[in-house]
Design a protein around this nucleic acid. Sequence first.
DNA 1: TGATATATGATATAATATAACATATCAATC
DNA 2: GATTGATATGTTATATTATATCATATATCA
Lengths: 162, 162
Amino acid sequence: MRQLAFDTHDHHRCIAATLKSAETQCAKAGLHFTPVRRRVLELLATEHRAMGAYELLDHLRAEGLGSQPPVIYRALDFLVGHGFAHKLERLNAFVACCHPGADHSPAFLICRNCDAVAEIRAQGARALLGDAAHAAGFAVDRAVIEAMGTCPACQQASDAPA
Amino acid sequence: MRQLAFDTHDHHRCIAATLKSAETQCAKAGLHFTPVRRRVLELLATEHRAMGAYELLDHLRAEGLGSQPPVIYRALDFLVGHGFAHKLERLNAFVACCHPGADHSPAFLICRNCDAVAEIRAQGARALLGDAAHAAGFAVDRAVIEAMGTCPACQQASDAPA
DNA sequence: TGATATATGATATAATATAACATATCAATC
DNA sequence: GATTGATATGTTATATTATATCATATATCA
């Protein structure tokens, strides 16, 4: 079961693993994995794509789990704050974390054409960035790394046009 | 005259160089460096910090150069599109480019404490990111790299509290 | 049980950004 | 110089994203 980049994978297991991991981590750390928080993570994991806050809120509303913006933003703050989800700054949207539990320096590959998003590890790039920053006297605590471009599927599609 | 990171520099020359460079590039490329566009770049260069679209628009309005949001967003689109300014996705704000004319892969260092922003070159990090993306079959055309952390001045301030 | 911290509900509004259409300006050509 | 086409600006309206604030509920623990 792989969960890297644009590869296909066993998505049922992927969703289950994401939720299970969050559950476990929350239990360990004494965090409350409440119904709203759980459901938001589940939605993100299930759709497996970048979703906007209001799109997520629409789901919650339909399910009677909350109807006002603060509900979703609080849930997202929790999930992002504890590393269960990430915010894509470029899209003002959110994705479930693909490497739950791993200490990671995530980078995102965002397809301009179809909006597919992949999370990859970027330890190397992150380290070089840290070095360059350090040389300028700056101490980095978090790096936003988002690559815009074309995913494999869209490259193929444009190579072989109708 | 240095214009790197958080170093001090001759700011008058820095502003002049930024405008001059944009002027030259526009002339070469047949682009219209109109009064609004010029003034927005000048504001960004003068303040030398991240500014929001509406903050910039307030200046334009005070000067009779435009009063509605589309005016500033169009000017910013032009400046960002041609590399004269950059958008900081993390802040939803804009800065003048510090390396005008240079073919560059900019990265930004953003101080959480005082919002100071420095633009550095990140060729190395960008290259590693490109490699990692390539391994996933993804073709990068642009990378957003923004480091959140603490600038030199704020580090000193917190080392030696009152 | 009562005190405290944490989470949710609800109202209002702030901040950021774009769609759509009208008008003006500029540059090239007839 | 008038015509045209491309580019830029003006203007109105509205969409999208996000937060402040205060009230209420729920959980935890002394």
